[in-house]
Structures are given as C-alpha cells and as structure tokens.
Amino acid sequence: MAETSPGTAAAEFARRQHSPLQRIQHLLHGYPYLSPLVILVLSFIVFTVAKPQFASANALGITVQQTAIVAALAIGQTLVILTAGIDLSVGAIMVLSMMVMASLAKDGGMPGILALLIGVGLATGAGLLNGLLVTRLNLPPFIVTLGTLSIFTAIALLYSGGSSIQSSHLPDILNVLGKGFSVGGFRLTWGVVLVIVMYLVMGFVLSQTAWGRYVYAVGDDPESARLAGVPSRRVLLQVYAIAGLIYGIAAWVLIGRAGAATPNAVTDANLQSITAVVIGGTSLFGGRGRLVGTLIGALIVQVFARGLSQMGVDQQWRILATGVLVIIAVAIDQWIRKVKA
C-alpha cells in the first residue's frame, strides 16, 4: 500500500474542510475563464428563448464577424494587462495603421503587400514607442497610452484629412479578409479565421514557452522576477511591441470587415478591448489570465449587444449592462485573488 506523506495528508484534509463556496473560489482561481464561460452560455440561452432568431446560423455568423475586431485587439490588450499595465491607445494605433496602409495603396499608388507591411510595421513601432516610454522613462502605462491615444488619433486624422477610402479604391490583398465562406448558412470571413489563428498562436506562446512564463512572472511580481533572472524590462518592451503588431493585423481585418478605411472607425475600441479582457477573467493586477477567457469575454460583449438590440432595449441600457458586467468581473477577480490554500 502506498504511503501518504504528512504534508500531502494535511493538504487533503484542508481541502475537505473547504466550504462549497471556497471550493468554487479555488476552482475559479485555477481556471479564471470558467465564470465568463457560464455567463456566455446563460446569455445565449436567455436571448435565444426571448428571440429564437438570435440562434439562427445567419445571426450567429454575423455575431462572430462583429466580434473579430474587438477580439483581435483584445489579444494585445491581454498581453499588456498580464504585465499589470493597460493600453488605452489600441484603437488609435489600429486606425492609424489602417489609414496609412489604405492611403499608400489607394488606386494603385503602391503595391498592396508593401502598403500592408508598412502599415503593420508602423503599428509595431507605435507599440514599441509605448513600451520605451514605460520601460525607459518609468512612466505609468495608463498615462503613456492616454497620451499616445491622443497623439496617434490626431496623426491619423491629419494624415487622412478626415476622409474615408472605399474598398473599390484598394487592392484585393487589403480587402481579402472581408471575403469568406458559408457552412450551412453560417458565414465566416477570412478575417475571423485569421483572428482564430492569432489566438491559437499566442495561446501557445503564453502557455508553452519560456517567454510566456516570463510575461506572467513580470505581471505577478516584477521585482521577484528580476531577482530570479527574468529580463523584466526587455520582456515588457517586447510585450508592447508585439501588442502593436497585433493591432496592425487588426487594422487589416477591419478594412475587410468594414469595406473601407475610415479614421472614425470603432471609436470605443480601447474600452471594448479592456472590457473583453476583464470580463474574460484576466486580472487587472497582472499575472493571471488566459487568452481563451479573453475570447469568451469578447463574445460576451457582442452577444449582449446584439441580444439586447434584438429585444429592443435602448442603447443607454445596453451600455449600462456592459458597465455592470465589468464591475461584476472585477469584483469576482478581487474575490478570487483572496483564495487561501
């Protein structure tokens, strides 16, 4: 018969003494995406019962397509929040990148692939600038990205002259992500497919690589991570640069989704991305969260928006519902962080 060590026996005894609520707290601590998953399933059931057409293949396809932009931006936002930072410039970087790549390629002015690479490169540089200001000048991420939000927004408006560029003036490569395919009435665009691939790649990087572990370590306790040999500043700089790269790819997805490049696109992208990340179970205090939770959070935001809209709920009440969700998500996170062994 196998012997049980005193430490193991004590731990098992402690687990048995937990109340049902404490067991839920421990479960959510280990799997922070479970609570948003429950919310998503319940929301889907409620809206389907209230409006059966909500669950039709066509309606679900539209919901997924509309989720793609916020979901893409939320990947970069998740990386930043995992390091206990926040990025308010996500939408501004995306729009600036979009307008640059569209303006350069307009009416054959530049090969589409080159314009795309320049736009994505510009977004990466913008993210790198945020990272340099945070790591080299030791400025708070909130202040840095609040400032660059205004800077990048102004540059995008000045560069574009406030004018939109329709898809008919753009090369096929910039419009291709708006095209797609149907499966039994459920339509997916190549932009949605690309966003899913981004989640798979970054999910693997965060969970299966040393760099991913460094990101969590920097967010959990940067000083301890530094003492343990983690190059905290370099990792933080890389996080902001990679986030910028992701925002640039999101700009490409947005052109395909919107059928145009406009400087006034997705004006609340920064708030939506933060909402998706927080609702998805990633801690605003850093060091805890999963990309799968972020994807669920982005779906929740869109499911609530479409569901309440189909039920005829006013826009003001939809905004209120989203705000309540955010507060509940942060409250749950605070409660989970108090978990005791």
Results as ranks from 00 to 15, higher is better:
17 Q>R: 15
116 L>K: 03
333 D>F: 02
243 A>W: 06
123 A>E: 03
276 A>G: 04
12 E>D: 14
294 T>P: 04
320 L>K: 11
132 L>K: 01
172 D>E: 12
212 G>F: 02
166 Q>H: 05
43 S>W: 03
265 A>S: 13
99 M>D: 01
267 T>P: 10
252 W>R: 00
279 I>K: 08
303 V>F: 14
304 F>V: 15
249 I>K: 11
288 R>Y: 03
7 G>T: 09
143 I>D: 06
18 H>M: 11
295 L>Y: 12
278 V>D: 07
21 L>C: 01
312 G>F: 02
132 L>G: 12
237 L>N: 12
119 G>N: 05
261 A>Q: 07
326 V>K: 10
328 I>D: 02
127 G>R: 00
310 Q>A: 09
39 I>W: 15
297 G>T: 09
298 A>R: 02
166 Q>N: 13
52 P>M: 10
53 Q>I: 08
117 L>W: 10
307 G>M: 04
330 V>R: 13
174 L>Q: 11
282 T>F: 12
62 I>V: 08
214 Y>L: 00
78 T>Q: 13
104 L>Y: 08
199 Y>G: 00
32 P>V: 11
336 I>V: 14
54 F>H: 04
191 G>M: 04
333 D>M: 01
30 G>K: 04
1 M>S: 11
322 T>I: 13
316 Q>H: 13
30 G>M: 04
237 L>W: 10
288 R>F: 02
215 V>S: 01
132 L>M: 06
153 T>A: 15
199 Y>P: 01
148 T>H: 06
53 Q>E: 14
183 V>E: 07
266 V>T: 11
66 Q>C: 03
76 G>C: 05
232 S>C: 13
266 V>E: 14
293 G>M: 03
252 W>M: 00
144 V>T: 15
225 A>G: 02
249 I>G: 09
144 V>R: 13
182 S>F: 07
109 G>D: 11
289 G>N: 05
334 Q>A: 12
240 Y>D: 05
161 G>L: 11
118 I>W: 02
162 G>H: 13
144 V>Y: 12
248 G>H: 03
324 V>Y: 13
233 R>V: 00
149 L>P: 02
140 P>A: 12
143 I>P: 05
77 Q>T: 09
28 L>H: 11
83 T>Y: 00
226 R>A: 09
30 G>S: 07
48 T>D: 09
331 A>L: 15
127 G>L: 03
27 L>R: 04
295 L>F: 15
314 D>F: 11
170 L>G: 00
273 S>K: 01
9 A>F: 02
18 H>K: 10
334 Q>Y: 07
281 G>D: 02
261 A>D: 06
21 L>N: 05
262 T>S: 14
45 I>W: 06
276 A>N: 02
176 V>F: 14
45 I>D: 03
65 Q>F: 07
221 D>N: 15
263 P>S: 08
246 I>F: 04
230 V>C: 14
83 T>D: 04
23 R>V: 01
177 L>M: 12
313 V>H: 07
41 V>A: 14
267 T>G: 09
167 S>R: 10
41 V>T: 13
41 V>D: 07
328 I>V: 15
287 G>E: 08
177 L>Y: 12
106 K>G: 09
197 V>Q: 14
5 S>R: 12
267 T>S: 14
190 W>Q: 11
172 D>K: 08
21 L>T: 06
81 I>D: 03
248 G>T: 06
128 L>G: 08
